[in-house]
Amino acid sequence: MREYLQNIWTAVITIMIGMRVTFKHLFVPAVTIQYPDVKPQLPERERNRLYVNMDDCIGCDQCARACPVDCISIETVKGLPTEDLGKTSQGKKKALWVTSFTIDYAKCCYCQLCVFPCPTECIYMTDVYEFSEYDRDNLIYNFSTLTPEEAEQKKINYAQFEAEKAKEKAAKAAAPANPTAVKE
């Protein structure tokens, strides 16, 4: 009998305590952040969409090699000796035309591994995280500053340059080859 009454007492008291707690919480300000209207404070080193500052990129391909999911693809063409490709902000001379530099954010896992190897610190994380798309192809971002025509032109230029150099070499190789043949 004692236990029975004790049970009732415990039930009533504990329910009261519980109800008091929930009632108090009715008036506690909500912790909800009304997302699109109010944005959460992001931590300092958050990892979101990458950005490549092409002015500084020397096309060394180190970021692409560091990427664990191979979502960066870089194509480069050597610049001609006559061309001036400009300098990076640290004063390094650029030697390569970056004909294409794409990052596929659909594949990117935001690990930031590509950021550290970059010698010129031109690939880095921004605070943009709202870039969803309806079409997956739209998530492939091209950072190259050259237009496709220009890129094509650079390739042709270089091919021509190479061809000319090869011809010269062949000619040079042919010229001293003959005297030795004569000697023998």
Binding site: H25, L26, V28, P29, A30, V31, T32, Q34
Partner: peptide, 13 residues
């Protein structure tokens, strides 16, 4: 609304 505010949320807004 009641459930949300009891859990320190806002509920439908």
């Amino acid at each position: 609304k009641v459930s949300a505010h009891m859990q320190d949320r806002l509920g439908p807004m």
